[in-house]
Design a protein around this nucleic acid. Sequence first.
DNA 1: GTCTATACTTGGATAGAC
DNA 2: GTCTATCCAAGTATAGAC
Lengths: 198, 198
Amino acid sequence: MCAVKAVKRRQTNRREILLEAAARRFVEDGYAAASMRDIAGDAGMQPGSIYYHFPSKEELLVAVHEDGMRLIAEAVTAALARVDGKTPWDRLETACIAHLSVLLTGGDRIKAVMRNVPLENHPSRSNITKMRDEYEAIFARLLGDLALPKGTDLHTLRLMLLGAMNWSFTWYRAGAESPERIARKFIVMLRTQLDTGA
Amino acid sequence: MCAVKAVKRRQTNRREILLEAAARRFVEDGYAAASMRDIAGDAGMQPGSIYYHFPSKEELLVAVHEDGMRLIAEAVTAALARVDGKTPWDRLETACIAHLSVLLTGGDRIKAVMRNVPLENHPSRSNITKMRDEYEAIFARLLGDLALPKGTDLHTLRLMLLGAMNWSFTWYRAGAESPERIARKFIVMLRTQLDTGA
DNA sequence: GTCTATACTTGGATAGAC
DNA sequence: GTCTATCCAAGTATAGAC
């Protein structure tokens, strides 16, 4: 039993090291320019050895993507677990702060998610779609808990808020406004009535 | 002089055909999987011939990206030219409808813009940044014309609105809600006060 | 000036040894 | 589970035709 666990851990470690190395290369060089040889070198193994863990470069990308999505979901879930008593708007704000913070200041395993999206048609894509749907359901629930004006389109609201946040990786620069402040401003913008009727 | 024009047109056409073929392959297969040989074949030439027009695959991507951005900017500018007399909110709505419509229902030369973004570090990236800044200035101006509540953060509002719209290519499906309706809903969401104080 | 033919080089992938 | 050797597809360079 101990042996089994040891072997399992060993496997996992090597796989994790590969995921980390791949994510780094994908983020730095882009998926197309990142070579399996470079990734293998960073992970301390020979190019051919990668194929014991992943059947192809594309599958490696999918694994990196899933890994990053899982980390994001865990970060947001953990943050929400800490604010259970507050108001619905507070809970939404907490989730948005966690989402933006992990997205913008997380490591390469997180950054790789937004910068390298596997193709729509790829066979292994179904699991990614499932993960994304589950993740977005968290926000759907948070929005559903708000006391919104009658007739508010929750579906559109969710797509708008998540879209605004997810796109931020294209313009965010470290040192400028913090992810937390950005998230708070997005929420304020939604809560406020911008149309003054003037 | 006629000869010069003929040669010029010939150049342009071949280049255009290449851009079209490349955009199509980039969208269909993704940048990494699209081969120069396939692109050349679609454009009716030999693989090596591409290199007379573009020095590398990456530069071809940059050219496709710039081409698409230009088409988007032209579409929005043209739409705005047609509604000069209306209210600031109407003008903003017009721009958003045009932006989303061309983005979501435009051809491959448009789709390629969102789906294949050249790397940040790439040398030829400066022109893309310049084009994007100029394009976003259009929206900055439209937002500046609105009579917004005092203290509204125009910068955040622009990033939020454009982010929500740009991200839509990840979830939009033809046949579902039209780009025009989506754009209108986004605007309504911003104009409305979502916080009922309840 | 534009394209073809062809060769060079890198890189994804596989087979079999250890 | 990893390495070595190898294959072949694909990016790229270039010489020369027209």
